[in-house]
Write a protein that binds this DNA or RNA. Sequence first.
DNA 1: AGCAACGCCTGATAGC
DNA 2: TGCTATCAGGCGTTGC
Length: 276
Amino acid sequence: MPELPEVETIVRDLGARLTGLMVERAEVLLPKVVAAPAPEEFARLIAGRKILGLSRRGKYILIELSRGWVLILHLRMTGQLVYTTVLEPFPKHTHLVLHLDQGVLRFTDLRQFGRASLVPAREVRRVPGLRELGVEPLGAEFVKEDFIRKLARSRRMIKPLLLDQTFLTGLGNIYTDEALHRAGIHPERRAADLDTREAGTLYRAIREVLAEGVAFRGTSVQHYVDGSGQRGRFQEILRVYGKKGVPCPVCGVPIERIRCGGRGTHYCPECQPFER
DNA sequence: AGCAACGCCTGATAGC
DNA sequence: TGCTATCAGGCGTTGC
């Protein structure tokens, strides 16, 4: 599933390839994936606009268009955003196609959870979902001391807190499990119960695991592909996610899988003890 | 207000 | 073999 490293990879890929191209025509194959405006209005508004650049906020992809509009995309679980200049039939589950003056950008999503919307540039920061997003964990605004203070104030379990996009934005199930393992913290521990040293270790683990995820061009467990349709490589170095029963690479004890905050959660009972 | 549970959706897999 | 039930999970919504 696309989390921060996957979305960052897509944005970098497509930013380099799409900037300067023009949207000639939008083809909406599954109307409900266009959240706003109405699909006909969407197609009418986007036609004839140039792509000025791409950026990312949390797991949202922002495509800045000429004359003051922005295309916002969220891939959710199984969405793919792929640019191709090769003439080929669209893959199954392709729901939205932007025909550019050179090549096509297609949005494909098996589960149909992903959404696209077109909004005026000045309203982007007010869009529900984007508006509430918390700190970017790879940005300068993610400050260790602030993070430690915020953890100390929360009675929630650490894993659901890390997944809360209004707290930190960009972590999903994979990188959260990996960060907690690297920090040696049990996912069900209360945030406020972590001591300063543990919180500091977790801060570094989050930055480290996300930066490595970007360096490896994302994790392709199932559906994720980059902006050119290629798989990432981070799945080759996962330590706990999807590794139930596999020996922990640090201590050799089998990885366990539990449910935490309603999510499948992987951890090492030896490296991440609940009791300290 | 803060937090938990649910619904959305299809394909893979487990169980009978 | 073939059917049904369950699971995967990001996020908006609903409800406690």
